[in-house]
Computed example of a mutant assay.
Amino acid sequence: MTEHPDSSSGGVRPRVPADDVPHARTWMSWPSRRSVWGRHLSGVQDDIALIARTVAAYEPVVMCAPDDWSARQARERCGPAVEVITDIPTDDLWMRDIAPVFRRDGHGGLDAVGLNFNGWGRKQVHTDDAYAAELVAARRGLRFSYADFVGEGGAVETDGDGTVMATESSLVNKNRNRGMSRDEIEDAALDAYGADRMIWLPGIKGKDITDDHVDVTSRFVRPGVVMVQLPPPGRDDVWARDAREQFTLLSGATDARGRRLQVVRVDGPDTVRSRKSTFVDSYLNFHVVNGAVITAQFGDPAKDEAARQTLAAVFPGRHVVQLDVDRLMGGGGGIHCSTMQEPLP
């Protein structure tokens, strides 16, 4: 956990705001490759369409499709409330990781930063995904730059008030940032996000395609407050141990303003419907939209309701909408992973 002073001279640095600021729109990507999803493609498309329709009830949604055929599919399943475009081709659906991170410039405008997406360490085809950030920024007419490190939007959580957190396993990893020290990666991430303090969590290398993105387990809900999902007491796999370690470390951490973090606990489900080893049973992979929080449910009535109530308490005034997107989450990611918000300036 390191603090870096604001090195800007005379003015406010561009900063990535927190997820809960007012949004202009949400960006998404239509899954189209059977080579990636195999026989699960149609079901995953249904889940992405459900998320898009749900988000579109609260704010505009732009869905990127790689070609005209895929665009027709997306329009049929998503309905007229979702704008589908074909001038930003993509390889897969994980818009959180391939889109730019949008920054407020302190003068009523936005710019955008690309995180040099490389297929989570060259684990998956990313011929088109590698250029999505730049193309999204160009479509919006925003000044664009590339960060000085390789990463993904789901790898970095920000409170919008000077503090970010990430797992070392994801970013301090030779498959993304070979030859860079942790301090060098930290400096580059703080510069990209306009932040002053990094909280590092160890994470887990090599057990999933992301090398353990922080947005599955730990999330900022506002400055000084984080949520951490903990597993049932009987679980002792690597993911359970990782979650408990994140809870312990964040409980003792302070942010860029010197505040001791308040940690809100969310209990993960006892049972899920899926048997896939890649299944992500995270309530915390939620997407905050204008007036709502969109999250998952897993068919565990008591835990689903407890998570809903906790989210409602920490995001007062917002509806909490829970969706069954098991097929998407069987692919190793969730609702937050498949969306990227564009804030209002």
Rank of each mutant, 00 (worst) to 15 (best):
N116Q: 09
H40Y: 09
R235W: 06
A243D: 07
V36F: 10
P66A: 08
S169V: 10
P343Q: 12
A166H: 07
V12G: 04
G194R: 06
D236G: 01
D270I: 02
A147P: 00
V325W: 01
R39C: 01
P89M: 06
G206C: 12
G10T: 11
V21P: 14
V36C: 01
L261W: 08
I85G: 00
L230I: 14
R75Q: 09
W200M: 04
D237N: 14
G331C: 13
G317C: 06
A306L: 13
R308W: 07
R139H: 10
T158D: 14
T167I: 03
P232V: 10
V321D: 02
A57F: 06
L41S: 05
Q124N: 11
D215R: 15
A49N: 13
D161H: 08
A71C: 06
S9C: 06
G119R: 04
P269R: 05
A49T: 11
P89I: 02
A65F: 03
S338V: 05
D91Q: 05
I185M: 10
R176E: 15
M1A: 07
A52P: 02
G121C: 01
D92Q: 10
D304S: 10
A52Q: 08
V84I: 07
L323M: 12
E3V: 14
L323A: 09
V16L: 02
Y146D: 09
V125L: 08
S277A: 15
P233R: 15
R259L: 09
A81N: 11
V272L: 04
T278M: 09
F315P: 04
V101W: 00
A292C: 10
V264Y: 05
T254C: 12
P22S: 08
D187E: 13
L250T: 14
V266Q: 02
D159Q: 08
S218I: 03
G38E: 04
A253D: 02
P232T: 05
D267T: 12
R260H: 13
I98T: 12
P231G: 05
T295I: 05
A49S: 15
A138K: 11
T127S: 12
A240S: 15
D208Q: 07
K276M: 12
A292R: 05
R104P: 00
V325S: 03
M180F: 10
M165V: 12
L41R: 03
G154D: 07
R34F: 05
A296S: 15
D196G: 02
P5W: 04
F117Q: 03
T158C: 10
S42I: 00
T158G: 13
L50C: 09
Q73N: 07
R222K: 06
D6C: 10
D270M: 03
V264G: 05
V136C: 07
V272D: 02
E168K: 12
D148H: 02
W37I: 12
A256Y: 00
G330N: 09
V113S: 03
Q341L: 08
Y283G: 06
I209H: 09
S145I: 02
D211Y: 06
V61W: 10
E83A: 14
G206R: 11
S277C: 09
R13M: 11
M165I: 14
A253M: 10
M340R: 14
G160Y: 04
I98A: 06
P80E: 14
P202C: 13
T295A: 13
T339Q: 14
T54M: 13
S338Y: 05
